[in-house]
């Protein structure tokens, strides 16, 4: 999926994560900050990158401010931000799937 415009999903509240995606040209540029970076940083990074890969996002600047979100929350927030940025969050949202 191609990132067409900047979009955001999620909040900065505890147990959530705020995901911002912006159009980019040099692959996936991920900026991650997390309140549990020392404990789960690797796992969080892997979850975000996996979700982006599943959505076939090749180029994007992604900023995630994590406040201790569970993996399922992270996935949902990343998906939502990508769908919003690709203008397909209005109807027939393909949760968990890929859009071609």
């Amino acid at each position: 999926m191609e990132i067409l415009k900047p979009a955001m999903a999620g909040t900065l509240e505890s147990s959530d994560a705020q995901v911002t995606v912006e159009p980019g040209t040099q692959g996936i540029q991920l900026t991650l900050s997390s309140s549990v970076m020392n404990q789960y940083g690797r796992q969080i990074r892997a979850t975000i990158l996996e979700t982006l890969e599943r959505l076939e996002v090749k180029n994007a600047n992604v900023t995630v401010v994590d406040k201790g979100a569970l993996d399922c929350t992270l996935k949902a927030r990343v998906e939502c931000a990508v769908f919003r940025s690709a203008d397909c969050s209005q109807q027939n949202i393909p949760w968990g799937g890929v859009i071609v």
Binding site: P6, A7, M8, T11, L12, E13, S14, Q18
Partner: peptide
């Protein structure tokens, strides 16, 4: 109580809707 987080989240969403990233 984490109230600042809620305020900042809301303001960032507001800015996003104005097209400011």
């Amino acid at each position: 109580e984490g109230l600042l987080n809620e305020i900042v989240s809301h303001l960032m969403e507001y800015e996003m809707n104005q097209g400011r990233v």
